[in-house]
Write a protein that binds this DNA or RNA. Structure first.
Lengths: 139, 139
DNA sequence: AATATTTTGCAACAAAGTTGCATTGTTGTA
DNA sequence: TACAACAATGCAACTTTGTTGCAAAATATT
């Protein structure tokens, strides 16, 4: 896995550092989306808060991760598919946030339906975010 | 308009105060969604920050306004349609956030398409947020 | 009008995010 | 491998954003 991670960093012309490897592997391991706070909890002993801010920002700019809008002022981040290039994201899948456990999923099976907007409105990015209970929290 | 505003407050069993009337009229006047910061800028001389936080919270709980998720850690709020009851929102319309001017629109003409989720995922709320350039910022 | 209830402002605090700069780590080249 | 050039990190200081308790003021109820 370590090989895969350094490959991703190299592909995006980023120098390979401990912080970047660790944060990238966190995304890989959990599989789900992470908020800044999640990452801070899981690596606060290893890295400074500021480093996490800067690393996430870099990853977004390079197209390694993308943001997921939320209503609770804690933006989530998730790994992009390979097709994501720097500054141009293709994340047409649905995101699901569980009200119970807070886990944020990328629902890859479902893609975001195209929507016709009124005249003059030009869509660049479309986010479909669904909240409710996930398959682990249902009774 | 003042009459309409007090009517809304009364309908939701809220006491009629200066802060609530002012904040509600801000939503009415602008027509678009507002972030906490927007409201603070437009009324900081009239009210304390804390009052704005508490008022927005109350309005959401009572179903007067609803939240719009964003990727920039500044949740937007917009007026609900009449059908919104306390704790149970029906905001099936699309939201549009302009990357240029930051204005957030409720696109009432378009409704959010229903989406089939994988087994075990139970949708409670669906938000479709589109970003790009609005009809005032297009060249 | 008087009292009960709710809302507000203030203060103090906690959490989240930003910036500049010296230090450390990484990369490419000799 | 060692060196220079460059980039990333940690730290400190700071700004902004959000929270809580409580006394004072405003609103509602009778």
């Amino acid at each position: 896995m370590q090989a895969k991670i350094t490959e991703i960093l190299r592909k995006h012309q980023l120098s390979i550092t401990e912080a970047r490897k660790k944060i990238l592997s966190l995304f890989w391991e959990t599989g789900n989306a992470l908020a800044h706070g999640d990452i801070e909890q899981k690596s606060s002993e290893d890295f400074d808060r500021v480093t996490i801010y800067r690393t996430l920002q870099t990853f977004v700019e390079k197209g390694i991760i993308h943001t997921i809008p939320t209503s609770d002022n804690s933006v989530r981040y998730a790994l992009c598919k390979d097709e994501c290039a720097a500054g141009h994201h293709h994340d047409d899948h649905v995101h699901f946030i569980c009200d119970d456990c807070g886990t944020t999923y990328c629902i890859d099976e479902v893609s975001v339906p195209k929507v016709k907007l009124p005249k003059g409105f030009n869509a660049v990015q479309t986010d479909l975010v669904i909240s409710g209970t996930c398959n682990k929290c249902e009774q």
